[in-house]
Amino acid sequence: MSAVVKLEDIHRIYDSGEVKVHAVRGVSLELHKGEFMAVMGASGSGKSTLMNTLGCLDRPTSGRYLLDGVDIAGLDRNELADLRNEKLGFVFQGFNLLSRTTALENVELPMLYGRRRISHRDMQERAEHCLEIVGLAARADHFPSQLSGGQQQRVAIARALVNNPQVLLADEPTGNLDSKTAVEVMGVFQKLNEQGITIVMVTHELDIAHYCRRNLIMRDGKVVSDVQVTDRLSADDELRKLHAAEAAAKLTA
């Protein structure tokens, strides 16, 4: 099976006048369809830069990046935007939903910028379908301020899914959530991954990384460890345990 993402000796040097920061120093990796990878590392390890590169938000200083067989080196700003629109889905730490805009309209957003014409009705149907996948169909007309953190992040995931991306990129998706909600969100990711969606997420929480299939650890701009997760956690099991523990706590209290 050919790789969805292929990085070959990627370097990224930030040149801010006198100081040159070598954020990524030669990363090569392949990501196949259906993978679920966690990128970990201390701050300054280059994981954010790597994510920006994977997300076609930034171009590597040197090295080759093939996304779904397309070399991004020759693409201009607009072509990169189109690539992001068609092949990538983004989930951010801070949810980044448009305030005073309903969940449904937030999910519709990427379709508004798609190169293909989609009728208003189709747009709405697809957005509703994606909200259903993340279990928020009933909250379609709620505003972000009326939703909990976990619900907001699920809206963001629905938004990332709406254009059927090749890869879902999540930048610390559980960073702003409490542990139980974080497990719920991981449950959504696991379910999507089981349906064949490729996911890359940045996290610095080791237990969250355990819900993924593959763990990549970076230090000083290099990959220092790239392993398959053996003792993978299931979000469903963990949630069940949490519920049981809560129930027990109430019983004994």
Binding site: G55, L57, R77, N78, A81, R84, N85, L109, P110, Y113
Partner: peptide
């Protein structure tokens, strides 16, 4: 956000 999800300048 708009640029990230594919809006052109």
């Amino acid at each position: 956000i708009r640029l990230a999800v594919g809006a052109h300048g």
